[in-house]
Write a protein that binds this DNA or RNA. Sequence first.
DNA 1: CCTACCGATCGGTAGG
DNA 2: CCTACCGATCGGTAGG
Lengths: 214, 214
Amino acid sequence: MAEDVQGRGGDGASRDRILEAATQLFVQDGYKSTSVKAIAGQVGITPPALYWHFSSKQDLFLAAMEGLLDSFVLSVHDSVTAEDPTEKLRQFVKAHVLWKLEQSDASGAYTSSIGMRDLVHSLPAKHRRALVAKQRRHLNLLRGILQDGTRIGVFSVADSRITAFAIITMCEYVQSWYDPEGELSAEDVGDCFSELVLSMVNAGRPDNSTKPVA
Amino acid sequence: MAEDVQGRGGDGASRDRILEAATQLFVQDGYKSTSVKAIAGQVGITPPALYWHFSSKQDLFLAAMEGLLDSFVLSVHDSVTAEDPTEKLRQFVKAHVLWKLEQSDASGAYTSSIGMRDLVHSLPAKHRRALVAKQRRHLNLLRGILQDGTRIGVFSVADSRITAFAIITMCEYVQSWYDPEGELSAEDVGDCFSELVLSMVNAGRPDNSTKPVA
DNA sequence: CCTACCGATCGGTAGG
DNA sequence: CCTACCGATCGGTAGG
């Protein structure tokens, strides 16, 4: 599923090590600021060796972003296990936030934290399609939750599409302000954001909601 | 106020033209992807001429980001004219959203829309301070509104700092999904976001809010 | 997977 | 504000 783009085959292990290093550096520094030399260096090989596994820097980038998006979408999807929309929404938001914060944690202290969405944007239009489709599935999962909740009367949202975008954006860029050294744990932020989002969709009080009293 | 960093003086007009071109390109493409050649080209001069007005690319970038942030913070601040917190919050959110969407509009159709926050991040720690301080003023304006509203009982927020971050993040990256060709105008999105935020802070129903019925 | 190497582009300087 | 030019780094190739 994530194997559309491929080098000349061979040792899958070192290919994976390159992919891992590349993913970390691309997320940290962005596409332009990450040199193939730096990626190769981190893996412990020389730059030309990289071209045996990937035909170009763009190719490597595409493969890295596909893997990253797959792992993200899958992780969030698997975290949403509840039956009722309120709990589902809580799980969705928390999973998104935790994944983002753990990712910036894992890649070594000072991530400049460039969003996946921005990264995807630096691909040529052609290759962007596949990734946008993956993002779309994430969006649709959320929209489905919002629509279910609205239908059975536990949420009240004026426009599920815009509301979904607002929620995702809010979660997607948590790391832009989150301080790992601060007093709040990633878990705390996840819980806090869940509550904010539940308020946002008027969970538990679906009446007189989109037009609050002035 | 925004004149801390300066070239050797002289013709202020061409300095401003450089600044304007640089701002647009930096916002569009990011720091690394914007070459001094491209900036000079857009102004209609040669790259070396640029170094008469600015001592380095970093310097030019810093000046551009300071100007951009000043205009942004000032614009939002001036838009918040109401007395009561509910209306103030509405104005704040709408002003933030509109500024962002108009900016990406103005710089010519296809902005890759890299956030100001990400741009600021690509500065060396030393120069970043001044810009973070400006962002802080924007944050504090919002926090003040939230706290006032909570005090007089029209809002209910558990943590004004996190709530403020959530709101700002949501607005800051509107352009990451907004489609100017779509059926929603920037105005529509501003109104929609205002309502979402008012729900988020439980405007008009400050009771039983942070703990909605399950 | 390596050494050796290439053309292009980068930010920036010399000198006027 | 220009021409001429520099060292460094970039992604990528040749050949093994």
